[in-house]
């Protein structure tokens, strides 16, 4: 589910074009985005899910770690969703409140996706912009390095790192982000090569602005469109990667949880009657992935008028 490279390149051309023609790219995009029903729908769902993750805990009757001893051992029989005992989504296999856990897990999953995606985008943009700006030998070495890294199974390296240095949420964020900055670096480099020859950059070089400042002040802002789209489309893939890591038991540490961990636990119970343990986490998982994908696709279509 990673963003489709070719489309990103086409988008890159389009944003470039827009800039050249001096149109207001962003205002046009807003209009086009508003016309896209799927994208607007996705945005609404996304906002609802974010509100749920942020504010859901104010409505919970139980904390995400407290065990309801009355239910323990009989969750499949009496632990279903119920308003009377405060377990709106039922209880998990130990008798903990599933509503509170889904709120918590949704927050963590979205965080992993967003932070991981930010890491990927920041590293990829800076790396690609640097390579493109300096060009020549530096560019050659940097891009050959990317070629080499592309053949390394990074999921595997991440698993090894989690095994070796122990699981931590920071490691998860950074590691998941580092899996996917390579494509970003390539696209950004290509863009930078074009932007580099624009008058404003040449002018900046002429007055002796430092290369790093040029990259940050003049090149990166011009990549904003593509960065936003890439970041949005990366998030669902990263949320799925996190769910795989949770499956391996290397995800966030109990009693904290993530949607992946909840689904994994629920999948062990679903054949034995406790349907709510899989249904609620899976619903939020799917809704989140759909929402991010539709919003991302919508943003891309909006910013790349060629697709219309």
């Amino acid at each position: 589910m990673y963003p489709d490279k070719t489309k990103m390149e086409s988008l890159a051309e389009a944003t470039n074009l827009a800039e050249v023609k001096g149109r207001s790219l962003w205002s046009d995009a807003r209009t086009r985005f508003a016309r896209n029903k799927a994208a607007v729908g996705g945005l609404v769902v996304l906002i609802a899910i974010l509100l749920f993750a942020l504010l859901g805990s104010f409505f919970q009757a139980w904390t995400y770690e407290a065990i309801d001893w009355k239910l323990m051992g009989r969750v499949a029989q009496i632990g279903g969703p119920s308003v009377e005992n405060g377990h709106y989504f039922g209880a998990d296999e130990l008798g903990r409140d599933l509503y509170a856990r889904v709120v918590q897990g949704t927050g963590i999953s979205i965080m992993v996706g967003v932070v991981g995606s930010l890491v990927a985008v920041i590293v990829g943009t800076l790396y690609g912009a640097t390579a493109g700006f300096f060009g020549g030998r530096i560019d050659n070495i940097m891009m050959r390095t990317v070629d080499v890294l592309m053949s390394i199974p990074f999921m595997f390296v991440l698993i090894l790192m989690l095994v070796i240095w122990g699981r931590s949420i920071t490691m998860l964020f950074v590691g998941i982000g580092l899996i996917s900055w390579l494509d970003m670096a390539r696209i950004v480099r290509g863009q930078t090569l074009t932007i580099k020859n624009k008058e404003f950059v040449e002018a900046a070089i002429a007055v002796g602005v430092s290369p790093f400042t040029i990259i940050l002040r003049h090149i990166v802002p011009n990549l904003l469109g593509i960065v936003v789209v890439y970041a949005t489309l990366l998030i669902p893939g990263l949320i799925m990667a996190e769910s795989f890591i949770s499956f391996l038991g290397l995800g966030v540490q109990e009693p904290m949880t993530s949607l992946g961990a909840l689904i994994q636990a629920g999948s062990k119970q679903m054949l034995y009657g406790a349907w709510w343990q899989i249904a609620f986490p899976l619903f939020f998982f799917l809704a989140t992935l759909f929402a991010f994908t539709f919003v991302g696709d919508g943003l891309r279509d909006a910013l790349d008028p060629k697709d219309r």
């Binding site: 770690e65 407290a66 065990i67 323990m72 296999e93 130990l94 903990r96 038991g249 290397l250 109990e254 009693p255 636990a265 062990k268």
Partner: peptide, 15 residues
């Protein structure tokens, strides 16, 4: 060590 069963017991004991 990572395992569903050990996890459940550790959670219950700590609670």
């Amino acid at each position: 060590n990572t395992s569903e069963g050990h996890k459940s017991i550790a959670i219950a004991v700590s609670q």
